[in-house]
Design a protein around this nucleic acid. Structure first.
Lengths: 151, 151
DNA sequence: TCATAATTGAGACGGTGTTGCAACAAGGGG
DNA sequence: CCCCTTGTTGCAACACCGTCTCAATTATGA
């Protein structure tokens, strides 16, 4: 089983890119999180660890990590992205709590199958998808946390 | 069958809001589009029609139109939102061409059912969802329009 | 008509991400 | 092992999208 590091290095060199100190540091930190995170979060952790990188570099390399398949980008509402390492993980989608921000995961082979069928029917070449359910998690719903029930 | 105008007015007054010249102008323009549009697009058309409104007003009222159910907001990647009138239309989701920006629509009762089932299982109260397939439409795929095939 | 509260427009502001550029460094060849 | 080429980095300015503030304006009910 290839390590994440060697997997990333392979991706890089096959694209004419180089493995650098910064890329290793970022990858290491990302893997240590083993959960969803956002860019500022990661940036702060890196700084705190004494091995910080610039914001630009972090953004640039998160893109590469996503392209290499090691990390998954989760587009949230209003242009804020979150990421999550995908090492050894199966594809899944997300439920986002609008009150506390919690992210639950779900997966459905059936939905995947329907997607492919839809694409085939319209001759659309799928490269990715976003399937996100918004609402309130059990705890928040119980507390009646609703943003606009009207009135 | 209630007109869109009266439907919007009803929504507004039931929320302690008022029907104004600007709101009427926006609604009218939105309906005349009968397709997907983005905010700048709409803003430009309003200006050109000689009945412009400010950007702030447009944003504020698009929110109300969405809340009233007359318009649907389509969250795109990278924080840019598009909208589409929903008068007399059934719910649907979107396929977005990464090359030409075309938006195809699809719908699946099966996916909707699965979503509800997933939510029920986790006691998650769904208020909305985004289901978007990214890729290349038939025409662009044929032209070989791919952003990063590597190499 | 008047009073009151919602609405508007203009521009400043905020968050998120990108870009241009000069200094720096990875890595293959000699 | 050093050099050279070319990718990489950090910084700071920039761009994008949308929101907020606030004074002036307008809709609505009494």
């Amino acid at each position: 089983m290839p390590t994440a590091d060697s997997q990333f290095t392979a991706y890089l060199s096959s694209h004419g890119l180089r493995m650098t100190r910064e890329r290793r540091v970022i990858l290491e930190q990302v893997l240590s999180l083993r959960g969803h995170f956002d860019v500022d979060d990661l940036l702060a952790r890196l700084r705190k660890s004494g091995r910080g990188v610039s914001r630009a570099t972090l953004y640039r390399n998160l893109t590469h990590l996503v392209d290499s398949g090691l990390v998954h980008k989760v587009e949230m509402d209003r242009g804020q992205a979150r990421y999550e390492p995908m090492i050894g993980r199966h594809h899944h989608d997300h439920m986002v709590c609008l009150s506390c921000g919690a992210i639950l995961e779900f997966e459905s082979d059936e939905v995947e199958r329907i997607q492919e069928e839809v694409c085939r029917k319209k001759k659309f070449v799928m490269t990715g998808h976003t399937h996100q359910i918004r609402g309130f998690c059990a705890a928040c719903a119980r507390k009646g946390a609703v943003p606009w029930t009207g009135g």
